[in-house]
Design a protein around this nucleic acid. Structure first.
Lengths: 194, 194
DNA sequence: AGGAAAAATTGAAGTAGTTCAAGCAATTTG
DNA sequence: CAAATTGCTTGAACTACTTCAATTTTTCCT
């Protein structure tokens, strides 16, 4: 099993559209490797999200802070997932989110200008980003349905069933806010106190 | 002002990527015009969503039904918007949603196989669908943030501010479920009984 | 390893929003 | 136009979940 970060990303990209060796080279050369320490921020409100981030190793979370200073987790990302402030990145406008590392992590960053260039240069690259966007949209639609139709307990159970291994890597308070409930209530669900 | 449905769609597509006359022709020829009567369904659970639908005239809504038989509105679409069961369409799997007309409507339908062919045939077409998917994802992320961080009253106010003209075209019960509250509670918000 | 900080747990009190039920208004359809 | 259906309103009772506060457990850091 290969542990070279670029080789891992290459496999990921190849699964979306088959690339020649040269194409792979072109694409991968635009990504830069970055180590992120636990609690370090890679995106902060008011700054434009310059990068789309592929997680090679580790775990990160994106959250917004409401007027009461409460964190609300919008997204998690572990190995083989992507994370950014999507609205900020796509439209290159100031972010509203924080993105921070839950664990020491290793990520591959693609900057917006390079992405733009890649999309324009090669139909296959465009296809890769199109597929990524479609899957993001489909995923989020499922999440919206879950938020609208399920109880707190059901939302937790669904998450636990779908991502059993991710579960124990996430601080409870961050999972609670991701699932739209308080950390106390999630604790009670987990310990059958409801 | 041109009222030819295909001309309207053409303007919409051109705003995403400039197309030659011939390219327009190729793309538009794949859409078929369909009239939908109020209350008529264009997508139903268990059947695969065969089409992506562009609204030329009218209004439609997508909803799921939970185990108690309650409607939960997932999406609205009026003029110049798109609607489908996104998960069903993208993955060509059985739908979980109903999509139905709120008003007598006129839509342009693109079937999945044609879309696939168009994406493969021309880089520009791929770009158009990539942009659509990106915007869908960005829109849905904003909606998730709103659901997690705002009160029922704030969610209603945000919607009313952003879509003042759409507001009076939607049945209240459907807007209530879109915003994640009961129709009674939305009624009270509107009449300042909270 | 040990002290400090962060996170999780628990119960009690509170509340944002739901459910129910009944009446009223508006719209649709024959 | 009348009758029926559908949608909206209102208040009262309820509940799923939050907030608060105190304690315990776990993790972090040198």
């Amino acid at each position: 099993m290969n542990t070279d970060p670029y080789a891992i990303l290459q496999t990921h990209l190849q699964s979306r559209a088959p690339l020649t060796t040269e194409e792979c080279e072109t694409m991968l050369s635009r990504f830069r490797l970055k180590k992120v320490k636990r609690k370090q921020f890679i995106i902060q409100p008011e700054y434009v999200a310059k990068y789309r981030n592929y997680v090679v190793q580790g775990a990160l979370r994106a959250y917004v802070t409401d007027e009461n200073g409460i964190d609300n987790t919008i997204q998690f990302a572990v190995e083989d997932w992507w994370i950014t402030d999507y609205n900020s990145y796509i439209y290159q406008q100031p972010a509203t989110m924080f993105v921070t590392a839950i664990e020491d992590s290793l990520i591959l960053q693609l900057d917006f200008e390079s992405e733009k260039m890649l999309k324009a240069a090669n139909h296959k690259f465009e296809t890769i980003f199109r597929i990524m966007a479609e899957r993001t949209a489909a995923f989020q639609q499922r999440r919206i349905i879950s938020a609208l139709t399920r109880t707190a307990k059901e939302r937790y159970q669904d998450f636990a069933d779908r991502y059993p291994l991710v579960l124990n890597r996430l601080p409870q308070y961050s999972l609670a806010s991701y699932l739209g409930m308080s950390t106390e209530f999630l604790s009670k669900i987990r310990n059958n106190k409801v």
